[in-house]
Design a binder for these strands. Structure first.
Length: 837
RNA sequence: GCCGGAGUGGCGGAAUUGGUAGACGCAAGGGACUUAAAAUCCCUCGGGGCUUAGCUCCGUGCCGGUUCGAGUCCGGCCUCCGGCACCA
């Protein structure tokens, strides 16, 4: 019988479903929560999903066999802009588009044979899901964590809508390419900065379970820095300018003060409003520096020097106090600004070894020794920082201060396809939160999506107008919807109970949470993970959860990449548009580009549907796990998947050939002999290798390699006696057990074929016997002066002296040692001996 | 610019704490089977040299160091990939 993946896979998928094998409930076993980042239902799954979910499924199935009660859910990150664009471009309602995509993608995931408990499926655009977004928002509003503030946003004048930062490409709108302007708009914010320090400190707890670089990115994003705020008196005024600096050791080198263009004092101090307007228009443009002298001076509080006050486009209003002291000698930005406007540059830090050149060619930003700094002259930078902060505090001139680069999270979106923000604006009562009993505030279906105006909800009158919950008079609803990152900030908690159960079931949450293993792309290393960590802490403060960190372990998988093909005339090409290395359309030679992340625009994609049809789910999964370790990028290879397919076929054919014999014989124990002991030992070695490879950072590629080795041993084994067959049965059973998390369907089928009862997933993971795995003889490597000169087989357990004697008496070794003085002999147990002459 | 990560055969990748570099797979070459092809199976497979059943030298981006011994540790460079990018 020929291996027919589709037949085998559908058979077992039906079996698993009818047995309810992956339905999970709480019990007294040790739990394991295995979670993969849920997809956006964009239409079809792509190879990145295949890889992500294959990795997660191996872990879930493996942990299950190790006796854990495994929670392995799946759902849909279903709100978002593409649905709205589909509506605008193709006239299909976002809801219809989204739910149809979900249907299709769910079929695809089921066809992959993933071990999900679908009864917990989450769909974020479902009112029963997003009502909780609204509930959390109301709670945060009560806690003072949600507030409304006017802020500057990216605005596309052509589309007349707000753009997220990632939708601004080189200062232009991603959709229509027109120049993006800054506009002031009232927006809702969540006070994530209230948790800045906690989120930073929490990184320590993640050290064991998260990749170092992700923790680092989180830390950088939070960006804690210690410094001091200092007041500079404005000459001829009672007012002071408060600046923030992390370099109080350079205070004596300040030669001017700069205000952010939007600093309230910039307006007051500047006469030339036109010039100020110009500087404001250059705000945030990193390429060029622009400044405007206000005509006023400030007094440096430490030396009473009179220094000019500028407005500068590079000074950020959002960070620190929105004003800085400028020390051009020791800050490159200030240096460039000083050069541009011919301002003095005053050196107050000298490097420990040597002297700075005069004139300076660039700022000296490193630490050093203070000069020309009154009583602090001669101190080192770190020591001076402390001393000067103390001095400023004592004199009442300044105060130590910690700043974060993390900003509060702006969650308002002028879009339709998202969670309505549950707020009502009443002319009498002002901002009124929607009462909890009125949740969910349902997103109306019947709206017109044109893509050019403001939020379509502004035209949905039934939605827009309501009565004020406080005074009953006619009032308006908030028409902005929430950032979709809200949806994904707590979905892992919703999975803890089934769809038809209570959403925030505390005992269930405390049983399953935190997530033991989270798996997803590194593109979410900052935002999604940070927001989830923030939400978890808010939920903790609400008494809903009893832990701080939602994800104990994180695996960030690499991208799936493929070579790009390009015709000089027709652009990117699909493989089938190429023949004999030439473009089919024009016959020009094809350029083989770099190996890049698969993307539709570059046409270097592989369609999972095609793969599964051609090779089956098992081969597709196995290859994506074998081709590279999970956290590294995976390079697609057509030949590679053929090889994986051949492996499964070989295993299939071998099992079928011997199935009758193997069914006939008993399981172990058996008396091993010189011939079959190799296979017996190899099996134990393989169990050890595969288990440690999975346990130790999920090295599935090498685990699969050892399964192939075991297969190779098995296929070259000639079973002559029943004892031989028993050993063979033992080897094959273990091979199938170990293969089952990787290629579940074929493992299940072959398991049944050799007379075992399904399901293989109710079997425990095999264990190895250290003694049975150890070799009787080892190959000893003999080095002379570090070079390999001989390899000799020796029995295990010899003493160092015996090993030395054996090594020194070897002819090949003698050649190098004869007549020479032995200086030192190093013996590495069980491996190697190095003779130094 | 700053902060990370990586660089190993023709290719994807192995190599546990410093201890046999190249596991496993792919490609390639040779052979068996076949009327033939595909599929399958077997053998070879980092490079050079020699007196070629063997022996020997070189070899993990480059230069240096530590060590009996370095792909692995240390210092300095080069290239590629990712993140942040005026955060004072």
């Amino acid at each position: 019988m020929k291996y027919n993946p589709e037949e085998v896979e559908l058979k077992w998928q039906r079996y698993w479903e009818s047995e309810g094998l992956f339905k999970t409930t709480e019990d007294n076993r040790k739990k394991f929560y295995c979670l993969e980042m849920f997809p956006y239902p964009s239409g079809k799954i792509h190879m990145g999903h295949v890889r992500n979910y294959a990795i997660g499924d191996v872990i879930a199935r493996y942990k299950r066999m190790r006796g854990y009660n495994v929670l392995h859910p799946m759902g849909w990150d279903a709100f978002g802009l593409p649905a709205e664009n589909a509506a605008i471009n193709h006239g299909v309602h976002p809801a219809k588009w989204t739910y149809e995509n979900i249907d299709y993608m769910k079929k695809q995931l089921k066809r992959m044979g993933l071990s999900y408990d679908w009864s917990r499926e989450v769909t974020t655009c479902d009112p029963e899901y997003y009502r909780w977004n609204q509930w959390f928002f109301l709670k945060m509003y009560e806690m003072g964590l949600a507030y409304r503030k006017s802020s500057h946003v990216n605005w596309c004048p052509t589309c007349s809508t707000v753009l997220a930062n990632e939708q601004v490409i080189d200062g232009a709108c991603w959709r229509c390419d027109s120049e993006v302007v800054q506009k002031e708009l009232e927006q809702w914010f969540l006070k994530i900065t209230a948790y800045a320090d906690e989120l930073l400190e929490g990184c320590e707890k993640l050290k064991d379970g998260w990749p170092e670089h992700v923790i680092l990115m989180q830390k950088n994003w939070i960006g804690k820095s210690r410094g001091v705020e200092v007041d500079f008196q404005i000459e001829g005024s009672d007012e002071k300018i408060r600046i923030f600096t992390t370099r109080p050791d350079t205070l004596w080198g300040a030669t001017f003060v700069c205000l952010a263009p939007l600093h309230p004092m910039a307006e007051r101090l500047t006469e030339d409003k036109k010039a100020l307007e110009f500087i404001r228009s250059k705000y945030g443009m990193a390429e060029e520096k622009h400044g405007l002298f206000t005509g006023r001076y400030a007094i440096n509080p430490v030396n009473n020097e009179r220094i000019p006050i500028y407005v500068a486009n590079f000074v950020l209003m959002e960070y620190g106090t929105g004003a800085i002291m400028s020390v051009p000698a020791h800050d490159q930005r200030d240096f460039e600004f000083a050069k541009l406007y011919k301002l003095p540059i005053k050196v107050v830090i000298q490097p420990e070894d040597g002297k700075l050149p005069e004139p300076l060619e660039e700022a000296y930003e490193d630490e050093g020794v203070l000069v020309d700094s009154a009583q602090f002259t001669g101190m080192s930078s770190p020591e001076a920082k402390e001393a000067i902060i103390k001095y400023l505090e004592e004199k009442g001139l300044g105060q130590a201060k910690v700043n974060y680069r993390l900003r509060d999270w702006g969650i308002s979106r002028q879009r339709y396809w998202g969670t309505p923000i549950p707020i009502i604006y009443c002319d009498n009562c002002g901002i009124v939160p929607v009462p909890e009993k009125d949740l969910p505030v349902i997103l109306p279906r019947d709206v017109e999506l044109t893509g050019t105006g403001m939020s379509p909800l502004l035209n949905a009158e039934d939605f827009l107008y309501t009565n004020c919950p406080r005074c009953g008079s006619r009032a308006r609803r908030e028409t902005d919807t929430m950032d979709t990152f809200i949806d994904s900030s707590w979905y892992f908690i919703r999975y803890c109970s089934r769809k038809d159960e209570e959403a925030l079931d505390r005992p269930k949450i405390s049983y399953w949470m935190p997530v033991d293993q989270y798996i997803g792309g590194v593109e979410h290393a900052v935002l999604h993970l940070l927001y989830s960590r923030f939400f978890t802490r808010v939920l903790r403060d609400l008494g809903i959860v009893d832990f701080d960190e939602p994800f104990s372990n994180l695996l960030t998988q690499g991208m799936v990449c493929k070579e790009t093909l390009r015709c000089p005339e027709h652009g990117w090409l699909l493989p089938e548009e190429v023949e004999d290395n030439k473009c089919k359309k024009c016959g020009r030679p094809v350029e083989h580009g770099r190996v890049e992340k698969m993307s539709k625009s570059k046409k270097n994609v592989i369609d999972p549907d095609y793969l599964i049809k051609r090779y089956g789910a098992d081969t597709s999964r196995l290859f994506s796990l074998f081709a590279a370790p999970p956290e590294k990028d995976l390079e697609w290879s057509d030949r590679g998947i053929e090889g994986t397919y051949r492996f499964i076929n070989r295993l299939w054919n071998l099992t079928l050939q011997r199935a009758d014999d193997l069914k006939r014989v008993k399981d172990l124990p058996v008396k091993t002999n010189d011939k079959n002991i190799h296979l017996f030992r190899k099996t134990h070695q393989s169990i050890k290798k595969v288990t440690t490879d999975i346990e130790r950072r999920f090295q599935f590629n090498t685990a699969i390699a050892s399964l192939m080795e075991l297969y190779n041993e098995l296929s070259s084994f000639r079973a002559d006696t029943d004892d031989d067959l028993t050993v063979m049965r033992f080897a094959l059973k273990n091979l199938l057990l170990m293969l089952s998390p990787f290629a579940p369907h074929v493992a299940e089928e072959l398991w049944e074929l050799i007379g075992e009862k399904p399901s293989i997933f109710n079997q425990p993971w095999p264990t190895w016997d250290e003694e049975a795995a150890s070799e009787q003889q080892i190959e000893l490597v003999v080095q002379v002066n570090g070079k390999v000169r001989a390899r000799i087989m020796i029995p295990v357990g010899l003493s160092d002296t015996e090993i030395k004697e054996l090594a020194l008496s070897d002819e090949r070794v003698k050649k190098y040692t004869d007549g020479k003085e032995l200086r030192k002999i190093i013996v590495v147990k069980g491996k190697l001996i190095n003779i130094v002459v």
